[in-house]
Amino acid sequence: MMNTSAPKPDAFDKLLDAFVEELQAMSDEQALDGADPAAMEQEGKALLQRAQDAAGRRRLAGAREKLAQQKDSSTRELTVSAVSAQEARRFLEQAANDSRFTIAARELKELSDEEVLRRYAKLKRLESDQFRDDQS
């Protein structure tokens, strides 16, 4: 069952909560405690800029990954849908001689075209996954 209740605050949580209240109640002068306001503002803005840059990089990386996944998926679908049962059967016959896959050649003759296409798609997927693993 999922836990939807608010977490029970521990000692450090309580301490942080108290500190937040203290900070909120503090005057600007107390908060700065002698620091140069202009320098503090500049440093704060620099932190914000670093965060913005990092967020941008992460968004870009996320978008690239999503696009790569989408391309991969489209390629697979295109490949599978473009072959005939005869071509798929020929591919599986060759795969039967490949030590990476376990498929008996004699089985192929007894399979329906639909099943051949299904196995072809599955094998292509495995092949593609293996290729990706080898690349990474």
Partner: peptide, 19 residues
């Protein structure tokens, strides 16, 4: 975040140091 004043940044950084 852009509207943070110097004192706001000072408070946020103090809190971060404690956290």
């Amino acid at each position: 975040l852009r509207a943070f004043t110097a004192a706001d940044w000072a408070k946020a950084r103090s809190l971060a140091r404690l956290a």
